[in-house]
Amino acid sequence: MNSIQSIFLLLLTLSLTGILYFVFIVWKSALARDGGAFPSASRLSRLGRMPSERSEISRWAAYLHRITGVGIFAFLSLHIVDVAFFAFSLNAYDSLHSIYSTLPMRIFECGLLFALLFHATNGFRLIIVDLFDIGVIRSNVILKSVFFLSIVGTIAGSYVILQPVIS
């Protein structure tokens, strides 16, 4: 491993730590202000309501939208810098880029795919909610398909991304 690769991995670790710190901020603020979607006794009693009446799922979606957004931005910053090596030296770019095809990095890419898919599909839901007066129940139906699409898409994509390493 050369020095450029080590710096890349160091920055990647720093980004992941930054994302974890942001998750902590969202979690703390959710506890302090939003009431939170957490399994306290009063929350659990709300689970007795009709599923379509529960608003917790859209709150979770809002937290996840923020966390995936900050995560994608952290990776984008790193990615802009690592592609910049292409302009200076093809060899430096290639040695740096070979990290992308290692197993841990491929697993990270599966996570990135989930973040992109969830952020994109949930973003379209938010645009639909803004433009059309569809109400909470139908908004939650769309949200369930958002989770379904992003999870299925991630599983299918992960199969393609991980296959060269597994077989």
Binding site: V83, F86, L90, Y93, D94, H97, S98, Y100, S101, R106, E109, L113, G157, V160, I161, P164
Partner: peptide, 16 residues
């Protein structure tokens, strides 16, 4: 860069 091409083949020749 990840699905239609394997990420291992997206080196400098791919970008060029």
């Amino acid at each position: 860069t990840h699905i239609s091409t394997d990420v291992a083949d997206t080196g400098s020749s791919f970008v060029t």
